[in-house]
C-alpha cells in the first residue's frame, strides 16, 4: 500500500516504459457488498499480472462500485485500473470520483463510454452521457497537465492518472473508429486495450493500419484475450455486438472432448500469434466467470511478469 502523501506513480506505467510485455486481467466486482469476494479475486492475480482492471457496472448490471473494489484490490497488493464509464455520472460526479480515487492511492484509469443501460438489469434507468469517453480522457489529462477542472478553473493537488481507454478493431465504421482512436490519443490516452481478439488475421490488418499512422509509437496497445470455458460461453460471446469470432474456432470448440482445455489452447494460440505482431505492448486477459484460470494461462504462455522491487506490495 503506497503512502498517500508521496507521489508514487503507476507501476503499470513503469512496466510499459521499461519495455516489458505487459499483462493485465480483470477483477469483476460482486453483485453484493462482500469485500472478501474482491479480495479473493485479487489473491488469484497478485504477482501474476502487472495490474487488474476493475470493471464499472459492466454490461450495465449493478455491482459494487469500481472505485471501492479498486481500492480493496490495491490494499490486497494488486495494482488496479479503475474503469470509469460516462453512462452513470455527470461531470460533477466524475471529477469528484477522480479526486477521491487518487486520494485512495489509485493511479490507473480506463476511460469508457459504457454499455448502454438497456442491456443491463435496470433498463428503466435514465442515462447520463454528459461527457463522451474522449471528453473524459481530455478532462483527466487536463487535470494532470494543467491542474484544471472541466470548467477551466485551477485546482490544487490534482490527480495524475496513467490514462487508458479502449478500442474495438472490429467495430464499424472502421475508418471512423481509427479516427476516434487518434482523437483519444490526442486527448491524452497513454494506453489502450482492445476488444477481445479471436480473428487474428483481421487484427493483424488493423495493426498494420495503426502502424502506418504511427499510432503504436504514441500509445501502448494491449490486445484483449477472452478465455472461454465452454462452447456455450463462446457462442454467447459471439452474440455481443462488435465481436468477431471465426466459425472455425466455434467448430473446434464444438468437436472438442475437453472444452475447458480447448478454450485454454485456443487462447494460448491467439496469444502466441499476437506476441509476434509488431507494435503490440501487451495483452489484457478477460476470463469472465473463470477468473482462476488466468494464472495458468499466463504461466503456460510464459508471460509471468518480473516486478521490480520497489513495487507497491
Amino acid at each position: 500500500m503506497p503512502s498517500l502523501e508521496n507521489e508514487y506513480i503507476s507501476g503499470l506505467q513503469r512496466a510499459y516504459e521499461s519495455g516489458e510485455f505487459v499483462v493485465t486481467a480483470e477483477i469483476g466486482p460482486p453483485m453484493s457488498s462482500n469485500a472478501s469476494h474482491v479480495e479473493k479475486s485479487a489473491d488469484v492475480l497478485r504477482g501474476v499480472v502487472h495490474a487488474a482492471n476493475v470493471t464499472d457496472n459492466q454490461t450495465s448490471i449493478v455491482r459494487m462500485s469500481s472505485l471501492a473494489a479498486s481500492y480493496i484490490g490495491l490494499t490486497r497488493g494488486v495494482e488496479t485500473i479503475l474503469q470509469m464509464t460516462c453512462r452513470d455520472r455527470n461531470r460533477i460526479a466524475i471529477q469528484s470520483d477522480l479526486l477521491g480515487a487518487y486520494a485512495l492511492g489509485l493511479r490507473n484509469l480506463l476511460c469508457l463510454s459504457g454499455d448502454h443501460q438497456s442491456l443491463g438489469n435496470h433498463p428503466q434507468s435514465k442515462n447520463v452521457f454528459d461527457l463522451d469517453s474522449i471528453q473524459l480522457i481530455k478532462a483527466v489529462a487536463d487535470m494532470k497537465n494543467h491542474s484544471i477542472f472541466i470548467n477551466g478553473k485551477k485546482g490544487k493537488n490534482m490527480p495524475k492518472f496513467f490514462i487508458g481507454t479502449t478500442t474495438n478493431p472490429f467495430a464499424d465504421p472502421r475508418e471512423l473508429q481509427i479516427i476516434r482512436l487518434k482523437k483519444k490519443i490526442e486527448a491524452g490516452a497513454q494506453f489502450v486495450q482492445t476488444q477481445a481478439i479471436y480473428d487474428v488475421d483481421s487484427f493483424e490488418s488493423w495493426m498494420s493500419e495503426v502502424r502506418s499512422l504511427g499510432l503504436h509509437n504514441e500509445v501502448y496497445i494491449q490486445a484483449g484475450i477472452l478465455v472461454n470455458k465452454s462452447l456455450r460461453s463462446m457462442e454467447m460471446t459471439k452474440k455481443v455486438s462488435g465481436m468477431s469470432i471465426p466459425d472455425e474456432l466455434i467448430e473446434r470448440m464444438r468437436n472438442s472432448e475437453n472444452q475447458e482445455e480447448e478454450g485454454i489452447t485456443i487462447a494460448l494460440e491467439i496469444i502466441d500469434r499476437l506476441r509476434k505482431i509488431e507494435g503490440l505492448s501487451g495483452i489484457h486477459i478477460m476470463a469472465v466467470g473463470w477468473e482462476k484460470i488466468v494464472p495458468t494461462i499466463i504461466e503456460r504462455a510464459g508471460l509471468m511478469p518480473t516486478f521490480d522491487s520497489n513495487h507497491s506490495d
Partner: peptide, 21 residues
C-alpha cells in the same frame, strides 16, 4: 445516437446498427 456521443461511434456499432437493438 443512443448514448448522445459527440466524437464518433462507440465500440458497439456493427453493420450500421446500434449496440442496443
Amino acid at each position: 445516437c443512443s448514448k448522445s456521443l459527440f466524437n464518433g461511434p462507440c465500440g458497439g456499432s456493427s453493420d450500421g446498427r446500434c449496440e442496443i437493438n
